[in-house]
Lab assay of single mutants.
Amino acid sequence: MTEYKLVVVGAGGVGKSALTIQLIQNHFVDEYDPTIEDSYRKQVVIDGETCLLDILDTAGQEEYSAMRDQYMRTGEGFLCVFAINNTKSFEDIHHYREQIKRVKDSEDVPMVLVGNKCDLPSRTVDTKQAQDLARSYGIPFIETSAKTRQGVDDAFYTLVREIRKHKEKMSKDGKKKKKKSKTKCVIM
Protein backbone atom coordinates (compact mmCIF):
# COMPACT_ATOMS: atom_id res chain seq x y z
CA MET A 1 0.00 0.00 0.00
CA THR A 2 1.38 3.38 -1.01
CA GLU A 3 1.77 5.99 1.72
CA TYR A 4 1.43 9.69 0.95
CA LYS A 5 2.85 12.38 3.24
CA LEU A 6 0.53 15.37 3.00
CA VAL A 7 1.12 18.66 4.78
CA VAL A 8 -1.63 21.23 5.43
CA VAL A 9 -0.27 24.79 5.54
CA GLY A 10 -1.81 28.24 5.84
CA ALA A 11 -2.32 31.16 8.19
CA GLY A 12 -3.80 30.75 11.67
CA GLY A 13 -7.57 30.36 11.82
CA VAL A 14 -8.20 29.39 8.17
CA GLY A 15 -9.55 25.94 9.10
CA LYS A 16 -6.61 23.61 8.49
CA SER A 17 -7.45 21.44 11.51
CA ALA A 18 -11.19 21.55 10.78
CA LEU A 19 -10.56 20.30 7.21
CA THR A 20 -8.25 17.53 8.41
CA ILE A 21 -10.58 16.37 11.20
CA GLN A 22 -13.54 16.46 8.81
CA LEU A 23 -11.63 14.14 6.44
CA ILE A 24 -10.39 11.79 9.18
CA GLN A 25 -13.31 11.70 11.63
CA ASN A 26 -16.26 13.01 9.60
CA HIS A 27 -17.16 15.76 12.01
CA PHE A 28 -16.81 19.53 12.23
CA VAL A 29 -14.87 21.16 15.04
CA ASP A 30 -16.14 24.70 15.44
CA GLU A 31 -14.12 25.88 18.45
CA TYR A 32 -10.75 27.40 17.58
CA ASP A 33 -7.82 25.80 19.35
CA PRO A 34 -4.53 26.86 17.73
CA THR A 35 -2.51 23.85 16.58
CA ILE A 36 1.18 23.40 17.23
CA GLU A 37 1.43 20.24 15.15
CA ASP A 38 -0.86 17.22 14.81
CA SER A 39 -0.46 14.10 12.72
CA TYR A 40 -3.29 11.94 11.37
CA ARG A 41 -3.41 8.74 9.33
CA LYS A 42 -6.25 7.39 7.24
CA GLN A 43 -6.56 4.55 4.75
CA VAL A 44 -8.58 5.50 1.67
CA VAL A 45 -9.18 4.27 -1.86
CA ILE A 46 -8.36 6.83 -4.56
CA ASP A 47 -8.93 5.86 -8.20
CA GLY A 48 -9.05 2.18 -7.25
CA GLU A 49 -5.76 2.27 -5.32
CA THR A 50 -5.79 1.70 -1.56
CA CYS A 51 -3.43 4.16 0.05
CA LEU A 52 -2.48 5.49 3.44
CA LEU A 53 -2.65 9.23 3.95
CA ASP A 54 -0.20 10.53 6.53
CA ILE A 55 -1.43 14.07 7.15
CA LEU A 56 0.48 16.70 9.08
CA ASP A 57 -1.71 19.53 10.34
CA THR A 58 0.59 22.46 11.01
CA ALA A 59 0.68 25.64 13.08
CA GLY A 60 -0.43 28.77 11.26
CA GLN A 61 0.71 31.10 14.02
CA GLU A 62 3.86 33.03 13.22
CA GLU A 63 5.54 32.06 16.52
CA TYR A 64 5.83 28.48 15.22
CA SER A 65 7.30 29.42 11.85
CA ALA A 66 10.72 27.99 12.80
CA MET A 67 9.18 24.50 12.71
CA ARG A 68 8.05 24.90 9.08
CA ASP A 69 11.30 23.98 7.34
CA GLN A 70 11.36 20.62 9.11
CA TYR A 71 7.87 19.48 8.09
CA MET A 72 8.26 20.94 4.61
CA ARG A 73 11.33 18.74 4.09
CA THR A 74 9.36 15.55 4.83
CA GLY A 75 6.12 16.41 3.00
CA GLU A 76 5.45 15.04 -0.49
CA GLY A 77 2.52 17.35 -1.21
CA PHE A 78 0.99 20.46 0.30
CA LEU A 79 -2.55 21.77 0.76
CA CYS A 80 -2.13 25.56 0.81
CA VAL A 81 -5.21 26.76 2.68
CA PHE A 82 -6.68 30.24 2.96
CA ALA A 83 -10.09 31.39 4.22
CA ILE A 84 -12.35 33.00 1.61
CA ASN A 85 -13.34 35.60 4.23
CA ASN A 86 -9.74 36.57 5.07
CA THR A 87 -7.79 38.44 2.38
CA LYS A 88 -4.56 38.42 4.43
CA SER A 89 -4.62 34.60 4.57
CA PHE A 90 -4.94 34.57 0.76
CA GLU A 91 -1.99 36.96 0.39
CA ASP A 92 0.06 34.76 2.77
CA ILE A 93 -0.21 31.80 0.36
CA HIS A 94 2.60 33.27 -1.75
CA HIS A 95 4.97 33.16 1.24
CA TYR A 96 4.08 29.55 2.08
CA ARG A 97 4.59 28.50 -1.53
CA GLU A 98 7.96 30.26 -1.78
CA GLN A 99 9.12 28.68 1.48
CA ILE A 100 8.06 25.20 0.29
CA LYS A 101 9.92 25.66 -3.01
CA ARG A 102 13.03 26.90 -1.17
CA VAL A 103 13.05 24.05 1.37
CA LYS A 104 12.34 21.40 -1.29
CA ASP A 105 14.86 23.10 -3.62
CA SER A 106 12.42 22.66 -6.50
CA GLU A 107 10.04 24.71 -8.62
CA ASP A 108 7.89 21.62 -9.12
CA VAL A 109 6.30 20.55 -5.82
CA PRO A 110 2.81 18.96 -5.70
CA MET A 111 0.38 21.52 -4.23
CA VAL A 112 -3.32 22.30 -4.19
CA LEU A 113 -4.70 25.76 -3.42
CA VAL A 114 -7.68 25.47 -1.06
CA GLY A 115 -10.20 28.24 -0.36
CA ASN A 116 -11.90 27.17 2.86
CA LYS A 117 -15.07 28.44 4.58
CA CYS A 118 -17.02 28.71 1.30
CA ASP A 119 -20.23 28.23 3.34
CA LEU A 120 -19.81 31.75 4.78
CA PRO A 121 -21.61 34.68 3.11
CA SER A 122 -18.88 37.20 4.02
CA ARG A 123 -16.49 36.46 1.14
CA THR A 124 -13.55 38.86 0.64
CA VAL A 125 -11.54 36.68 -1.77
CA ASP A 126 -13.25 36.25 -5.12
CA THR A 127 -13.28 32.75 -6.65
CA LYS A 128 -11.77 34.16 -9.85
CA GLN A 129 -8.86 35.70 -7.90
CA ALA A 130 -8.06 32.30 -6.40
CA GLN A 131 -8.46 30.51 -9.75
CA ASP A 132 -6.11 33.02 -11.37
CA LEU A 133 -3.51 32.54 -8.64
CA ALA A 134 -3.71 28.74 -8.91
CA ARG A 135 -3.42 28.96 -12.70
CA SER A 136 -0.33 31.18 -12.41
CA TYR A 137 1.21 28.57 -10.06
CA GLY A 138 0.13 25.69 -12.32
CA ILE A 139 -1.76 23.97 -9.49
CA PRO A 140 -5.41 22.96 -8.91
CA PHE A 141 -7.79 25.16 -6.89
CA ILE A 142 -10.64 23.76 -4.80
CA GLU A 143 -13.15 25.57 -2.62
CA THR A 144 -14.07 23.76 0.57
CA SER A 145 -16.21 24.02 3.65
CA ALA A 146 -15.03 22.02 6.64
CA LYS A 147 -18.46 22.75 8.15
CA THR A 148 -20.60 21.27 5.35
CA ARG A 149 -17.84 18.89 4.11
CA GLN A 150 -18.07 20.39 0.60
CA GLY A 151 -14.88 19.71 -1.35
CA VAL A 152 -13.01 18.16 1.60
CA ASP A 153 -12.37 14.73 0.06
CA ASP A 154 -11.76 16.37 -3.31
CA ALA A 155 -9.00 18.62 -1.90
CA PHE A 156 -7.03 15.80 -0.28
CA TYR A 157 -7.62 13.32 -3.12
CA THR A 158 -6.60 15.89 -5.74
CA LEU A 159 -3.35 16.39 -3.84
CA VAL A 160 -2.69 12.63 -3.92
CA ARG A 161 -3.28 12.68 -7.68
CA GLU A 162 -0.83 15.58 -8.02
CA ILE A 163 1.79 13.60 -6.07
CA ARG A 164 1.21 10.57 -8.32
CA LYS A 165 1.65 12.72 -11.45
CA HIS A 166 4.82 14.20 -9.99
CA LYS A 167 6.28 10.77 -9.14
CA GLU A 168 5.42 9.49 -12.61
CA LYS A 169 7.09 12.49 -14.22
CA MET A 170 10.18 12.10 -12.03
CA SER A 171 10.53 8.41 -12.86
CA LYS A 172 10.20 9.16 -16.60
CA ASP A 173 12.85 11.86 -16.28
CA GLY A 174 15.04 9.41 -14.37
CA LYS A 175 14.68 6.77 -17.11
CA LYS A 176 15.61 9.32 -19.78
CA LYS A 177 18.75 10.24 -17.85
CA LYS A 178 19.67 6.58 -17.37
CA LYS A 179 19.25 5.89 -21.10
CA LYS A 180 21.51 8.81 -21.94
CA SER A 181 24.19 7.67 -19.52
CA LYS A 182 24.40 4.23 -21.18
CA THR A 183 25.98 5.73 -24.30
CA LYS A 184 29.62 4.72 -24.36
CA CYS A 185 32.59 6.34 -25.93
CA VAL A 186 35.21 4.09 -27.53
CA ILE A 187 38.68 5.48 -28.12
CA MET A 188 40.86 3.55 -30.60
Rank of each mutant, 00 (worst) to 15 (best):
G12Y: 02
L133R: 06
R97F: 15
D47M: 02
V112P: 03
S65Q: 04
S17P: 02
K128M: 07
G75N: 03
G10T: 06
D105W: 01
C51V: 11
V8T: 01
I21G: 05
K179R: 08
C185L: 06
S136Q: 14
K177R: 05
M67K: 03
T158H: 12
Y157W: 07
Y71T: 14
Y157A: 12
S136P: 14
V125D: 11
E76M: 15
E62S: 06
D30A: 04
H27F: 13
L53M: 05
P121H: 11
E76K: 12
E62Q: 08
C51N: 06
Y157M: 09
K88Q: 12
N26H: 09
C118E: 07
R73A: 13
I84F: 13
R41H: 00
A134D: 03
K42C: 03
T35W: 15
R102Q: 12
D108P: 04
L113D: 01
M170D: 14
Y137I: 11
A155G: 11
T74Q: 13
I187W: 07
G10R: 00
D69I: 01
N116W: 00
S39W: 13
L120W: 10
V7C: 03
M67N: 04
L23W: 06
S65L: 02
D54Q: 02
L133S: 04
E49M: 10
V44H: 04
I142P: 02
A18K: 00
E37F: 03
T127Q: 08
V14H: 06
Y157S: 12
I100D: 01
A130E: 08
E31T: 11
N116R: 00
K42Y: 02
Y40D: 00
K169W: 03
E98N: 08
K169A: 10
R41W: 00
S65I: 02
F90D: 13
E107S: 11
Y157I: 11
I84L: 13
E168H: 02
R73K: 11
E63D: 05
V29F: 09
R97I: 15
K165C: 04
P110E: 03
G115Q: 02
A11T: 12
G77M: 09
R164S: 07
K128Y: 05
R149K: 09
E62D: 11
M188G: 08
E49K: 09
N86K: 09
D30S: 07
D30M: 09
Y64K: 10
R161C: 05
L159K: 07
D126E: 07
Q131W: 09
G60R: 15
R135Y: 13
G151R: 06
D33V: 00
V114C: 04
L120T: 13
Q70I: 07
L6H: 01
L56R: 02
T58P: 10
A134R: 11
S181A: 08
D38M: 00
G77D: 00
A146F: 04
G174D: 10
L56V: 08
K182H: 14
Y157K: 13
K184G: 10
I21P: 00
R123A: 12
P110I: 03
D108R: 07
E63C: 02
F90I: 14
R149D: 13
L133E: 04
Q22S: 13
K104R: 14
S181V: 13
T183D: 14
L23T: 15
A66S: 11
K101D: 10
G60E: 15
K178E: 09
D108L: 07
M111E: 02
K169F: 15
I21H: 14
G75I: 05
M170R: 12
E76Q: 14
R41Q: 00
S145L: 03
L120Y: 15
C185P: 10
L23C: 13
E49A: 08
I163N: 02
K42Q: 04
S136R: 09
T20E: 01
T50R: 09
S17E: 01
V186L: 06
V112G: 01
A155P: 09
V109E: 01
D173W: 05
E76C: 15
F78M: 14
S136I: 07
I55N: 15
R68A: 05
V109I: 14
L52D: 02
V9Q: 10
I46G: 09
E162R: 05
C185Y: 05
V109C: 10
A146G: 15
K178Y: 06
D173G: 12
F90R: 15
E162N: 13
Q99A: 12
K104Q: 13
Y32R: 00
V7T: 02
V81I: 14
V114P: 01
V9S: 06
A130F: 11
A83H: 14
Y96S: 04
K147R: 08
Q25A: 09
A11D: 13
Y64T: 08
A155M: 14
V103T: 15
V7P: 01
R68G: 03
L79P: 02
V112C: 05
D38I: 00
D154N: 07
M111I: 11
T127P: 07
K184T: 04
Y157E: 13
V152R: 13
R149S: 09
N26I: 02
E98I: 00
A155K: 05
R102H: 13
L79R: 00
E3K: 05
R68Y: 04
D126W: 06
T183A: 08
F78I: 13
K128L: 05
Q99T: 01
R102Y: 04
D54I: 00
T2N: 06
N86G: 11
A83C: 10
V8E: 02
E3G: 06
R41F: 00
Y40M: 14
T35F: 15
Q25Y: 02
Q43E: 10
F156W: 05
E31I: 03
I46E: 14
A11K: 10
I21W: 15
Q25L: 14
R41K: 01
D30T: 09
Y64Q: 11
E31C: 12
V114L: 12
A83Y: 13
A134W: 04
D38L: 00
D126G: 08
K172W: 15
K169T: 13
Y137F: 07
T50Y: 08
V152I: 09
Q131L: 06
V29K: 01
K184A: 07
K165D: 11
E107W: 11
I21T: 07
S65P: 02
S65E: 06
Y40P: 00
S122E: 12
T58M: 06
Q22W: 12
L52V: 09
H95R: 12
G48K: 05
V8Y: 01
K176R: 04
V160Q: 07
L159R: 00
Q150M: 04
F156L: 15
N26E: 12
T74I: 05
D92E: 13
Q99K: 12
E62N: 08
V44L: 12
K165G: 09
G174C: 10
E31P: 05
Q70N: 09
K175E: 15
V8G: 01
I24K: 05
K178M: 05
P140R: 01
R135I: 12
R135G: 08
S39Q: 05
R73C: 09
T2M: 12
M170C: 06
K182M: 05
K16Q: 15
Q43C: 05
S181C: 10
P140L: 02
M188W: 08
Q43T: 09
K101I: 09
V103N: 07
Q131P: 08
V7E: 02
H94G: 10
D132R: 05
L113K: 01
V103Y: 15
T20V: 04
D105A: 10
Q70P: 02
H27D: 09
I84Q: 15
F78A: 04
C118V: 10
V45I: 03
K16F: 01
V81T: 09
L53W: 03
Y157Q: 10
T50L: 11
A130R: 06
G48N: 04
D57H: 00
K104L: 08
D47N: 04
L159N: 03
T183V: 08
Y40I: 02
I21F: 15
K180A: 12
L23S: 13
K172P: 13
R68H: 06
A59L: 03
E107V: 12
E49F: 03
D69A: 07
Q131M: 11
Y71D: 11
E98V: 00
C51L: 09
K169H: 03
F82S: 12
R135A: 06
S136F: 10
A11H: 06
K167A: 09
H166Y: 08
R135V: 06
D153L: 09
H95Q: 11
G13H: 11
Y40E: 00
